[in-house]
Computed example of a mutant assay.
Amino acid sequence: MQADFDIVIVAQAGRLEAEALLLAASLRRFSPGFAGRLVVAEPQPGPLWPDDPRLTPEGRDMLVELGATLLPFESRRFGAAYPHGNKIEALAAMPPRPFLFLDSDTLVTAEIGALPLERPSASMRREATWPVPRPGWPGYEAVWRALHERFGLEIEPTLDPARSAEDWQRYLYFNAGWVCGPDARAFGARWGEWACAVLDDPPPALDGQVLHPWLDQAVLPLVVAAFGGGRPGAGLSGLDGPATCHYRTFPLLYARESDAVVAALEEVAAPNQLKRLLKRHEPILRMVYQGRGRRVRALFDRAALPAAEKEIRNILRSHGFWMR
């Protein structure tokens, strides 16, 4: 059965444009049954963008040819100072419809159109990036409880009771690489309002915590819980699984992702009309078209990868393969 929802991504000139083209091409190739809209949200010039963030005309035309609907939106809170806020403001500019937000550095690798999005959730493919333990801090329990209490939320229903109080995985914490829910506009509006509240007046338990670039992920669990959501259920197991891959960067993709993901990337990047645009982004040129990705792949055993992404990045840097 096909669900009725929008896939929302953000794209602008440069890296995100190239990633958006690959995402749109992969959606068309590997999820032909998707019956909803692919909405490409594009930030517009304004006081928060010193440089024009809009897509190139060629990139915009190709996205439309690949089936995307373009959605211009104004940056009222974040802009260039905090581009992670694009996703928040893009969702707030959407119609009040079910949505699946995907970071632009994502490939669709299987049918995606029947996902159950009635209950808000987000990606669990994350590490212990925030909050950061430091001398004298009050601990995970105090930080997360203070944030929940700030917005009148009960923390107990969000906890994983199988984990101890100072295990970071006890607390609802997501990667914002994918986010879903039944009402994009309401979700984005709440996310933006609460993110600004935390940024402008953080609870005392957050003293010493750095909110940039983690603000969106620090507030996301609160918004998910406020709309009755939580950790993703079995129906969403295809995300960060057989249906999507949030690869982050092209060197990381070649280092750690499956043979199927690499094959999907190289297949959708092959058509000459798309290749002409993608070659403008140097990491795609080097990794995909000039074959450096295959050399990266030979450095790693996918069955025994380093536990932390930072270790993989360090290996890539030491061999001269790191590119963003």
Rank of each mutant, 00 (worst) to 15 (best):
R231S: 05
A189H: 03
L222F: 07
P213E: 10
F227H: 11
A189I: 04
L215R: 01
A218I: 12
G235W: 00
V223Q: 08
P203G: 11
L215M: 09
W194G: 01
R185H: 07
V219H: 07
Q217E: 15
W191H: 13
A186Q: 03
W214I: 02
V223P: 03
L206R: 05
D240W: 10
V219C: 09
V224A: 07
A184L: 01
P203S: 12
S237Q: 13
A226P: 00
V198L: 10
D200S: 13
A197L: 08
W214K: 06
L199C: 03
W194I: 03
A225H: 15
L211F: 10
S237M: 06
P202H: 10
G228Y: 00
A197W: 07
L222A: 06
L211A: 10
A218P: 01
P221W: 08
P202K: 11
P213L: 10
V224M: 06
A234S: 10
P221Y: 08
P232G: 06
A225L: 06
R231T: 07
F227L: 09
A189Y: 02
V224Q: 01
V219I: 14
A189R: 13
L222T: 06
G188N: 04
L239T: 10
W214L: 10
G238L: 10
L222K: 09
A184H: 00
D200I: 01
V198W: 11
A184M: 03
L239K: 06
Q217W: 02
P242M: 00
S237L: 07
V198C: 11
V224R: 00
A243G: 03
W214N: 14
A234F: 06
G241T: 07
Q209V: 11
R185A: 15
A225V: 03
L199A: 15
P232D: 05
A218G: 15
D240M: 09
A225S: 15
Q209W: 06
D207K: 14
H212L: 13
A243M: 12
V210D: 14
W191M: 05
G208A: 07
L199H: 14
Q209I: 11
A189K: 06
V219T: 14
E193A: 15
G235N: 01
G230P: 02
L215A: 03
Q217P: 04
P203H: 12
L215P: 00
P242D: 14
F227D: 00
A234H: 08
A243Y: 00
C196Q: 14
D200L: 09
R231A: 13
L215Q: 02
A197T: 10
L239M: 13
H212V: 14
D207C: 06
H212D: 15
G238I: 09
F187S: 02
P213S: 08
G188M: 02
R231M: 08
A225W: 04
C196K: 08
A195R: 03
A197Y: 05
A205T: 12
G188Y: 04
P204G: 13
G230I: 01
P204C: 13
P213N: 11
G192C: 05
L222D: 05
G238E: 11
V223R: 08
